[in-house]
Amino acid sequence: MNMTLVVSLLLGGAAFALFNAIFQVRFFEGTVRGFLDLLDTVADHLGKYNTKRYIARIKRERIVKRKENPVMKYNRLVEGLILDFNMPVTLESFTSLLCISFAIVALVIVFLMKSVTLSVVVTISIFIGILTWFVMQSKAIRAQDIENIMDAEDLICPLARDGVLVAIKKVMESDEYISPNIRVYFRQFIDNCENNGYSFRQAITLLNRQLGPKFDDFTKKAIVFEYNERKGMADIFLDIVDENAVLREINARKENIFRKMNRDFLIKTVIVLLFFIYALSVDDFRQYMLNTQPGKLINTLMICVICLSFARCQALQGNLGMGSDRK
């Protein structure tokens, strides 16, 4: 495509837009409306299909015990991401969006690389990298939630000798003591005990389910204390404060190690990319890497190595990481 043709196309497009604006002509109005109606119809059918799959999955999970396999691991991973990021979608809707995005990105890369096989490999690697990044952010959210729960426990435990409900109400008197992220759950616990007819065991169990496994120890001790209180038993809550102090120290050390791992990986990746971009300034190297099959294969391998190394780095951190899954 020479410069004359490019200029002619641009001038033609500008004249066409000006003609539409002056005379208010809508050449493609019917086409656009039909396309939007088609998209709306497809989205509606896809939504109904995902709803049926969601209902079938819930029924199946209530009847059949889950078996550990790649599908179950994927489902658990996505459900965790949806919960952590408060996404207004179901597992089925997320999977549909993921497949549509994968197909679009794959088509774009096929157009650029002119190779279906290499494009699929590159697309898979990119999506693994993107999913890993979301998992990394999810771990940060969970770590912060656990920190907020420990802060709340440290405030409630010393006051628990007058009763767990009384202690929580005292801490809730100030908006500064408990994080807004979990404050709503403690407010619901108080309402359940005082206004909604819940027993203490039912209310604290629901609170435990909302806050996650980190709150398990406090819940067990709170139930024992509430129904079997004896003199001096309130000191059992002070063990939680000591455990939280130790856990904070361990988490701080892990955080320093993980931060160094991520920083080293980022620095190495940036060095490789900068060297590659600089090397593209050489005409022969650029032609070889961008226009030949061996060069495209090398580019594909480089992208795969970067994305999979990033995923491996985060997987190692997940095996050693802080926190735990929500219930």
Rank of each mutant, 00 (worst) to 15 (best):
S8G: 07
L9Q: 09
G12V: 06
A17F: 13
F19Y: 15
I22T: 14
Q24H: 14
T31G: 11
G34H: 04
G34D: 11
L46R: 09
N50A: 14
N50W: 07
T51P: 00
Y54D: 14
E61G: 02
K67N: 13
V71E: 07
Y74G: 01
N75H: 09
E79A: 04
D84F: 02
F85L: 07
M87T: 15
E92K: 06
T95L: 12
I104T: 11
A106F: 12
V108N: 00
V110E: 09
K114L: 13
L118A: 05
V120M: 14
V120Q: 05
V121C: 03
F134H: 10
Q137T: 01
Q137P: 00
A140V: 04
I141P: 02
I141M: 04
A143S: 13
I146N: 13
I149F: 01
A152R: 03
D154M: 11
I156T: 10
I156A: 00
C157A: 15
P158T: 14
L159I: 04
R161E: 07
D162S: 06
L165A: 12
I168T: 01
K169W: 01
I178R: 02
I182E: 10
V184N: 08
F186R: 11
F186T: 14
E194S: 09
G197I: 06
L206A: 07
L207Y: 03
Q210V: 09
L211H: 09
F215T: 02
K221T: 02
V224G: 01
F225M: 10
F225L: 12
E229V: 02
G232I: 08
G232R: 07
G232T: 09
M233A: 13
D235M: 06
D235E: 14
I236L: 11
I236P: 03
D239E: 12
I240Q: 04
R248T: 08
I250M: 07
K254R: 15
I257L: 04
K260T: 11
K260P: 00
R263D: 13
I267T: 05
L273S: 05
A279N: 10
L280D: 03
V282A: 12
G295M: 08
G295C: 07
T300S: 13
C304G: 09
C307I: 06
S309T: 11
D325I: 01
K327S: 08
